[in-house]
Design a protein around this nucleic acid. Structure first.
Lengths: 145, 145
DNA sequence: GCCTCCGTTTACGCGAACGTCAAGAAGAGT
DNA sequence: ACTCTTCTTGACGTTCGCGTAAACGGAGGC
């Protein structure tokens, strides 16, 4: 339960540098305890770090991530605060769903490009790759609009 | 068919500044023709720009986008080139699918947070928002692991 | 002729997210 | 006591993706 982590342990586990963790601390995203000078990271710090890193992977800025984290464990749990949080969460969800659409479209396009490459290779290397439907005259650029 | 666009038209249509278009040109992502000094963008330029902007939205760097665009309309259409392209496309697809997973998880978490906010608001404002299942003691931070 | 757009190039600036020294503290092992 | 290793705090450097002047070039309208 009360498991703690040194900075080195956390960097190895999460695949980031210690500089990154200190930077997140400077930015107010993490607030590990201290034992003398050394930082002691709690489970909670670890969980927050996971959220931070995933946020980063989906394109959030550190400022945006901090805002979300602040909403999560705000001290003020009044009605106004929850209304504000609700709105912010809803906005983020909408943005993420739009981004998901972009990703799906990108994947679809790349799969098309991959299929074209496979087809070319099947035609020019017929006994190695299983041959597929013959395609000719496909455009190099995806169609506009 | 042979429709062309001025820089201003394109910026308005795509919601970017002219500086951005010139920057993309500096980076080799766009190569509009010239009429004297003025840039003349073709349909193909427009299509490429759409790809660039979508790539940006999903988090690609301009260098990565350039690489993909280069794969799309490489002049060398030999077997080796197609094999290389195929591999690159496959890598991108894998990365995008991982990113999609991150996004789905983020959405799920935000929806949970939103539901908690709704619940709180329902409890403390019972006649305005339709009441929901009573929840108590929910944690402020999502579970670790 | 002059104004007003729309366009151009050159080039310095900037915020974000760290990287990369430099210099030292603090404990663990021999 | 000495060396390792891991940690610390500055603080300057770097890359990316443009923003932001500054200074100038045509083309069209009055």
């Amino acid at each position: 339960m009360g498991r703690t982590y040194s900075i080195r342990q956390l960097t190895k586990e999460m695949g980031v540098t210690s500089r990154t963790l200190r930077h997140y601390e400077d930015e107010g995203l993490l607030t590990p305890e201290r034992q003398g000078l050394a930082r002691i990271y709690s489970q909670r710090d670890r969980a927050r770090l996971q959220l931070i890193l995933r946020g980063r992977r989906v394109g959030f800025s550190l400022a945006e991530i901090r805002e979300i984290l602040d909403l999560y464990n705000s001290e003020d749990h009044g009605v106004a605060q929850f209304q504000h949080s609700r709105k912010k969460f809803a906005e983020r969800i909408v943005a993420l769903e739009a981004q998901r659409k972009d990703i799906d479209e990108s994947i679809a396009e790349l799969k098309l490009a991959l299929a074209r490459a496979d087809n070319f290779l099947a035609e020019h290397h017929a006994e190695q790759n299983p041959p597929r439907v013959k395609m000719t005259g496909y455009s190099v650029m995806p169609a506009a609009e």
